[in-house]
Amino acid sequence: MRHTITITVENKFGVLSRVAGLFSGRGFNIESLSVGETLDPTISRMTIVTRGDDRIIEQVTKQLRKLVDVIKVTDLTDSSFVDREMILVKISATEKNKAEILRINEIFRGKIVDVSPTTYTFEITGDEGKIEAFIKLIKPFGVKEISRTGKVAILREMNGE
C-alpha cells in the first residue's frame, strides 16, 4: 500500500542522506521526496511517498524516529490530508496544434511560464489525479521535458467529522 509520510528534521547538512540511506539500506523504495524549510529556519519538512505492507511501513517510521536529526514523523495515510504536486512541462507546439495545446492547459488551469516559437512551458499544480490526467492528454503533442516536484502534503484540520 502507498503511504504519505511527513517528517520534520533538523535543517542541517547530511540529514537528507541519513533519511534516504535508511530507505535504501533496507531495500525500501522512495516514490517521491520533497524537502523545504519551515517557518523556523532550523527545521525542514520532508514529504515522502513510499510503498510497502504494514510491517515495512511500521519499520520505516520507527527507524525514521530513531534518527537523531528527525524531530517528528507522521504517517498521513490513514488520516484526511491534502496533497499537491507541481510540474513544469515543455511541449513542442506547431501552428496546427497550438490552439489545442493551449485549450488543454486552460482546462487544467495551468500557467504559461515560458514561450518560444516552437515550445510552450506550462506550470500545473494539483493532486495526483489531475497531474496524471494532464500528462496523459498532453503527451501525444510531444513532451520535450518534464520536471516534477514530488508531493507535498498537510493534514486537514477537520478530520472526517
Binding site: F13, G14, S17
Partner: peptide, 13 residues
C-alpha cells in the same frame, strides 16, 4: 561520515 552512516547511531562533522 558517509562510510559509517549505516553503522553508527549518529555522527558529526
Amino acid at each position: 561520515i558517509g562510510i559509517t552512516r549505516p553503522i553508527t547511531k549518529h555522527s558529526y562533522l
